[in-house]
């Protein structure tokens, strides 16, 4: 399956990042008050753009995209139907959130809509993991898949939220701007740490789950640790380096220092994203069926 599932690589990562951005930024706004909300304004729109671009990528995977409305026909049994429904509701709730937040008429509905978006976002990541937890694919059919997706959502969402606030932050010295950026960055660091932890718990579990050799003599773990070893190790290095750079940027921001760090922040995000993309390609390469 090497490389052939690239639309799904970008679809899953972008939707997970979209959910992560919403979760981290909403929690940061709840704790950071009005100033934090100002630094993270437009967060639902950024989240929507990420999710919508991700969903657009998913069409690249289909042989007959014109038939895609039929994809909601098997909600009773198919996790793929449920994934499409959840992703669509999540994106619709982000649109509703933007409308309720930025139009005076509907402002009263903003909070309940935010709760709906938050819950549906979490459900989307869960349902997305269930799509791949197929009983006939041992390497995917383990808790590692859920940890992988939750980890990606938290890690990329934290970096995206942190950077969004960081670029909005004027960098002036003063308690009125330093307190909210410190609040946002400390939460982003917490969630990024949890995301990275999930990834490091997930990696050994998925390698263990993929040990089984099928009738063709193929093992998912052997496949990624032989031909795919270079990219597999590189994804881990990139995740660590990207997160470390983000820790540096976040610490500097918490100390009120914005000088020379913008490029480092962008670099941290892109390096971490590259690590996730490599890791997701490895995930799809671990599709090894039991049986014939």
């Amino acid at each position: 399956m090497v490389g052939s599932e690239w639309p799904l690589v970008y679809f899953t990562i972008l939707v997970q990042m979209s959910v992560g951005l919403l979760i981290v930024s909403e929690v940061a706004c709840l704790t950071g008050g009005a100033a934090a909300r100002d630094l993270l304004r437009g967060r639902e729109s950024f989240s929507f753009v990420l999710g919508a671009v991700g969903l657009a990528f998913s069409f690249g995977h289909l042989g007959s995209p014109m038939h895609s409305p039929f994809a909601l026909f098997n909600l009773a049994h198919s996790w793929l139907s449920r994934e499409i429904l959840c992703t669509s509701i999540f994106l619709a709730s982000l649109v509703a959130l933007a409308i309720t937040r930025y139009t005076a008429t509907f402002k009263a509905f903003a909070r309940p809509v935010a709760v709906v978006a938050f819950v549906v976002g979490l459900a989307t990541v869960y349902v997305m993991s269930q799509v791949y937890m197929i009983v006939t694919v041992p390497a995917w059919n383990s808790p590692a898949t859920l940890l992988n997706f939750v980890g990606a959502a938290l890690l990329l969402g934290s970096l995206a939220a942190g950077l969004l606030a960081y670029f909005r932050w004027p960098g002036e010295d003063g308690a009125e701007t330093r307190t909210p950026i410190a609040c946002i960055m400390s939460l982003a660091l917490l969630f990024a740490g949890l995301g990275l932890l999930a990834k490091f718990i997930e990696i050994p579990i998925s390698l263990f789950a993929g040990l089984e050799t099928n009738a063709r003599g193929v093992s998912a773990t052997a496949a990624v640790l032989t031909d795919g070893l270079g990219p597999y190790v590189l994804q881990i290095v990139l995740l660590i380096v990207g997160t470390a750079l983000f820790v540096y940027v976040a610490n500097a921001a918490m100390r009120g220092n914005k000088a020379v760090l913008s490029m480092v922040g962008i670099g941290a995000f892109l390096i971490t994203l590259a690590g996730e993309v490599l890791g997701r390609f490895a995930f799809f390469d671990m599709h090894v069926l039991i049986g014939l």
């Binding site: 042989g63 007959s64 038939h67 994809a71 799509v131 197929i134 006939t136 069926l289 049986g291 014939l292």
Partner: peptide, 12 residues
């Protein structure tokens, strides 16, 4: 059929 390959992924 949308040609999503999901059946192909799952059938042993």
């Amino acid at each position: 059929c949308i040609g999503c390959h999901y059946c192909e992924w799952a059938c042993p």
